[in-house]
């Protein structure tokens, strides 16, 4: 999870796109897997996401993030499976649990969508500095700066919090709290008291950030304060057309 959801410096074609294009692309990739119910198409979208990560030089990170999500998805898949009882039975387990073809296909679709829809956001954040995101939100989309700042600050804080949480778990393990237990329920129960230090350090950090922003003129900022100018180029046009095509294909049901 190291560096998940944070910007990675680079100069790939993807990095150089207009921030708005990257946001639209992320949204289109996400939307396509909800518009389409086709497993193959969604798998293709996952593959496309990985290709885009690779083109931005972040494939190793993408794969490790994907793998950690796959574990979680496997649990989701099994849970889903047991809840769907209608359809053509393919398998009957003891205790009267029946697996149906429809159940398997639906559960599979569910986890594929889950995987495919988390990746575009991670992709966008890894190739776009949060400053750029807030600049276009404010200038092009006319979002009030306050809201844009909250969104981008949240994106910036996630890696800090995950680092803090692993530090807290380390400190507790070192004094004998058995996080190395295999019992999942027990592990969750052990995690609950740790929310206190996490909450306290988060509140402290947010407070410090607010002070720092205030003293650097946060309240004076206007829609036109942004210094950087972003231009649309041929690449942006190509990507936007491709996105439109992807969404059209997904929504049209050419592949049901």
């Amino acid at each position: 999870m190291n560096g998940f959801l944070s910007y990675v410096n680079g100069s790939s074609p993807l990095h150089k796109l207009h921030p708005l294009t990257k946001m639209v692309m992320s949204f289109a990739l996400c939307a396509s897997c909800f518009l389409s119910g086709n497993h193959v198409l969604i798998l293709c979208v996952i593959g496309l996401n990985l290709c885009l990560f690779a083109s931005a030089g972040g494939i190793a990170r993408a794969v490790s993030t994907l793998l950690s999500f796959v574990k979680f998805s496997a649990v989701l898949f099994v849970l889903q499976l047991f809840f769907i009882k209608d359809g053509t039975p393919i398998f009957t387990l003891p205790l009267g649990i029946t697996l149906t073809y429809e159940g398997v296909m639906f559960s599979l679709l569910f986890v594929l969508r889950f995987l495919a829809s988390t990746m575009p956001l991670a992709l966008m954040l890894s190739v776009t500095p949060v400053g750029d995101i807030s600049n276009v939100l404010v200038r092009n989309l006319r979002v009030p700066y306050r809201y844009a700042f909250v969104i981008t600050t949240a994106a910036r804080f996630i890696p800090l919090f995950s680092e803090e949480m692993s530090g807290i778990m380390e400190a507790q393990t070192a004094r004998g709290v058995e996080f190395d237990t295999r019992n999942f329920i027990k592990k969750i129960r052990l995690l609950i008291p740790l929310c206190v230090p996490l909450l306290i350090s988060s509140v402290r950090r947010i407070e410090n950030s607010a002070i720092s922003a205030e003293l650097r003129g946060f309240n004076l900022r206007t829609r036109l304060s942004g210094y950087k100018r972003y231009s649309f180029g041929a690449n942006d046009a190509t990507i936007l057309i491709a996105c439109a095509a992807l969404v059209a294909v997904s929504a049209s049901g050419i592949w049901p």
């Binding site: 803090e164 530090g167 807290i168 380390e170 400190a171 507790q172 393990t173 070192a174 004094r175 004998g176 709290v177 058995e178 996080f179 190395d180 237990t181 008291p193 740790l194 206190v196 230090p197 306290i200 350090s201």
Partner: peptide, 19 residues
């Protein structure tokens, strides 16, 4: 957690421990 029974580890930041 077994080694932790006879070792103590104090971190730089006490706030990661106090809960």
């Amino acid at each position: 957690s077994a080694i932790a029974r006879f070792t103590g580890f104090l971190f730089q930041n006490p706030d990661r421990q106090i809960c």
